[in-house]
């Protein structure tokens, strides 16, 4: 499919690399639905995800974290940028330039798990059809083979193979999430994007499913993009974390570094906002309250998009857009990353 000589360069340990990704959605208004502007949902996002790691993407609603995942799997067409992916064969492909047909073939290697286990499964399909569907589409095996494979997948995710002919309504939220995971695993992908995969689940069930995802990662050598707004969860599961705000990455760091010493004021604010299951700790903790709410992405603030809410903002932040730049072995988008002494959460 690709000319080896023209293959894009990708560091050996990287599985997927997003470079200068942009996604702009048009805004239409009026009787003629004329385009009157655009929302920069994703503005210049670059990140590398290494083989076998879990990369966590955190941010509040409207930060664009889900959009990044959808762009990486080409569920949306991108406005600009490139996405390099290392295939199982070793070839490196720029996904952004593939045709729909070529992309379909790629999707066996990249899969997604969704948040809502209630709406992401077709209620009229039983488990055999649901989990077997990707196999049928990709023409893998005979009916008997598919049946065996589905039964095996159900076992892998901790569901009983006897459930083969049951429908999704017969299962709890946590079990439905497992059905979604089995479906994602059907074609042996190397990369899985999990979008708020445990956010809708109760505490005890979320813990079970997180453990399952980690077991599967070890068993099959999977690489995860783990998207969530739950900082406790993302800290637990991720090797590295990217923090997003209004369509931009504000900081990328190793999990430990990020939580012990954030370099971006937004990261600090996020951590300080999360109430902990620790009443004495909550009372003792300095609560940094960020003012206001996330800005309208159709009309983002000038300069650093976080400046209207940032307790450390200065004149320069209003006028000059900070670049995502390397600081102390990490990447930060703040003019004052070196000077600020920000508080992490005690390790």
């Amino acid at each position: 499919m690709l000319d080896k000589a023209n293959m894009p360069a990708l560091a050996d340990d990287v599985l997927i690399s997003v470079r200068n990704l942009k996604k702009h959605f048009p805004i239409h208004a009026g009787w003629l639905r004329r385009q009157i502007g655009e929302v920069k949902a994703i503005d210049d996002v670059s990140l590398d995800i290494r083989k076998g790691e879990t990369f966590g993407l955190v941010g509040e609603s409207g930060s664009g974290k889900s959009t990044v995942a959808r762009l990486m799997l080409r569920a949306y067409t991108l406005t600009d940028g490139s996405i390099l992916f290392r295939r199982g064969s070793g070839d490196v492909v720029d996904i952004s330039s593939l045709s729909e047909r070529q992309m379909r073939e790629m999707r066996s290697e990249m899969q997604m798990i969704f948040q809502d286990p209630y709406s992401s499964l077709n209620p009229r399909m039983n488990l055999l059809e649901l989990v077997g569907e990707p196999l049928v589409i990709h023409g893998v095996g005979s009916r008997a083979e598919i049946r065996d494979r589905v039964a095996e997948l159900l076992r892998v995710v901790g569901l009983r193979p006897e459930f083969l002919l049951r429908y999704p309504h017969a299962f709890s939220g946590g079990q439905r999430q497992r059905i979604g995971i089995a479906r994602a695993l059907a074609l042996n992908p190397s990369f899985i994007a999990a979008d708020e995969a445990v956010s809708a689940l109760d505490v005890s069930v979320a813990a079970q499913n997180i453990n399952l995802l980690q077991d599967l990662q070890e068993q099959f050598g999977l690489t995860y993009l783990f998207i969530t707004h739950d900082l406790g969860m993302v800290e637990h599961i991720s090797d590295r974390i990217g923090v997003m705000y209004l369509g931009r990455l504000m900081e990328i760091a190793q999990t430990k570094d990020l939580f012990s010493k954030p370099l971006h004021p937004y990261t600090e604010a996020l951590m300080a906002s999360v109430p902990q299951p620790d009443p004495r700790g909550n009372r003792a903790r300095k609560r940094i309250q960020v003012k206001g709410e996330i800005a309208n992405p159709a009309n983002p603030p000038s300069g650093c998009t976080f400046h209207p809410r940032c307790p450390y903002a200065q004149e320069r932040c209003r006028t000059e857009v900070p670049a995502l730049r390397p600081v102390a072995g990490r990447q930060v988008r703040c003019h004052f990353a070196e000077e600020l002494e920000l508080a992490g959460v005690a390790a």
Binding site: A206, E235, F259, P277, D278
Partner: peptide, 11 residues
């Protein structure tokens, strides 16, 4: 058991 199953920041 519930308290044990919650991931905590910085722990």
């Amino acid at each position: 058991a519930l308290l044990n199953s919650i991931p905590r920041l910085g722990v």
